[in-house]
Design a protein around this nucleic acid. Sequence first.
RNA 1: GUCCCCGUAGCUCAGUGGACAGAGCGGCUGCCUUCUAAGCAGCGGGCCGCAGGUUCGAAUCCUGCCGGGGACGCCA
Length: 556
Amino acid sequence: MIKDEIARMVEEAATRAQEAGELPAIALPEIVIERPQRSEHGDYATSLPLRLARAAQANPLDLGQALVRRLPPSDAVERVEVLPPGFVNFHLSESWLARQVDAVLEAGAAFAQAPVGQGQKVQVEFVSANPTGPLHAGNGRWAALGSTLARVLQAAGYRVETEYYFNDAGSQVDVFARTLYARYQQLFGREAPVPEDGYVGSYMVDLAEQARERFGEAMLRPQGEPAPEELGRFGMEQVMDWIRRDLTDLGVHFDHWYREQTVYDAGHFDKVMALLREKGLIVEREGAVWFATSQLGADKDEVVVRSSNLPTYLATDIGYHYDKFFVRDFHRVIDIWGADHQGHVRPLQLAAEAMGIQPERLNIIIGQLVTLRRGEEVLKISKRSGDIITLREVMDEVGRDACLFFFLSRSADAAIDFDLELAKRQSAENPVYYVQYAHARIAGILNHAGESALGGGDVAGGDTSLLTHPAELALIRKMLLLPELVETIARTLEPHHLPYYAQDLATAFHDFYEKCRVVDDDSPELSRARLKLVAAAQSVLATTLGLMGMSTPDRM
RNA sequence: GUCCCCGUAGCUCAGUGGACAGAGCGGCUGCCUUCUAAGCAGCGGGCCGCAGGUUCGAAUCCUGCCGGGGACGCCA
């Protein structure tokens, strides 16, 4: 990446200036190359002189000049200038920029790649909603975020695996089974109230009806007897089918589906309990077993085994993370959780540390919640409290691509207030179509060229040195940003920049389109060069949309 | 009470140490005989919640306060 090359040049210049005595032999700060907001400040800039001025006891402008004198030559950089209060600005060579079109075309989707991960094994775990009800809109947010993050990390050179963790054991499973059995019995006229803490959503009635179709009355037990296990299993499998179908239709794929029960079957639970006990972090009190997080700086301990002898969710999760780090050997693990799980972050991090995992290897992204509304009416989202707006309904109303784009556009730190009425009304003028339209327009141009005197899609023949128009260069500059963006997202784990970049890129194309005629029989050489440019732009647009899991229509 | 997130244009949100603060939507005005007008150009719109502090430089970092959301369970 050109940005890295400039950073190397600056570092070399600084070192040489020190050797020449023009810069005191002080420790250099990290070389930061930034992108100026204003185009007259060049393509890249560094404020290194400002940062050095105090320690060097020198005028930043003089330091800048000394730096510039020692800069090694580069055919990518045409002009370097020092501007007050102490910035060094780099202007890229226009002929170098034009040549990058060839490089972009040749690289294809690989153009987005950034050398960050170096083949490290990383896991992204997300959604992981329990199969006790259909996915709701909030789950869709994590699906969009997690799958996009996984694709970006892949492009950044990590070996990525995605995972969905689901409970097929534990108390919620039991509540689910009892609720289903109550609804099932009601279908046969029995007095069977839904449990106090049960799932009151109407989908449980639908499930009960499916169970009746499947089993007839064979699942009925004598009054007062508990729900048959088979009925609960049946219900959960149905729900898992819904979940899998919804995710597939959203375009979200998981490499692994991990059952909670595995943590016990494989012995991970016993293993971590023994591990923590060895470290003196397990205490027994009030009939329960506690993880002594207070010894690690927390303000209270956490129960890991209830007095009923059942392990808690936290205990299972610790075992699950033992599996991630020590059995499956992920170098890095990323968990995406909703803000309602934030209290769970610290205990799990403490457990991971106690197991010897360096904190930076476990990234827990806490995403703020989604509030759904229809105009003024706030809709319930909790599975336990009532009927929910499912992800399926949102996808049907708003459209898959618009849904993904909307969820991705917000930082995970920002709560989303999703107004279905507004989303539906705005879906036709959603920015996602603006981006896709750019892609489709290019497809139209390429088609048109094929039918013109220029002949078929022979894009390879163009001479990119003919690309000199400001709109052409602006488009190329925007294209070159993608690998840098991939690098940034891989570092910050914040994919919400992607939709904004996609819009900027589309704007650069639409602007070019207005100003530069591509297919023009009177100037075939320029036409061929521009065909090459739009083909490259289409490739970058498609790659960007692809990272977000969205479709790339050729026609709209 | 403690902890986490947020507060930026009429609305929804980017920008988290740099050089005159941005986008989309909404409002107003223009532009289709020419590769898709789901497009383009222009106009209007901001004590960046408030008060201190750190810094050559703060929307961005620190402290306090105000407002909104979330968590504090032997639920997950």
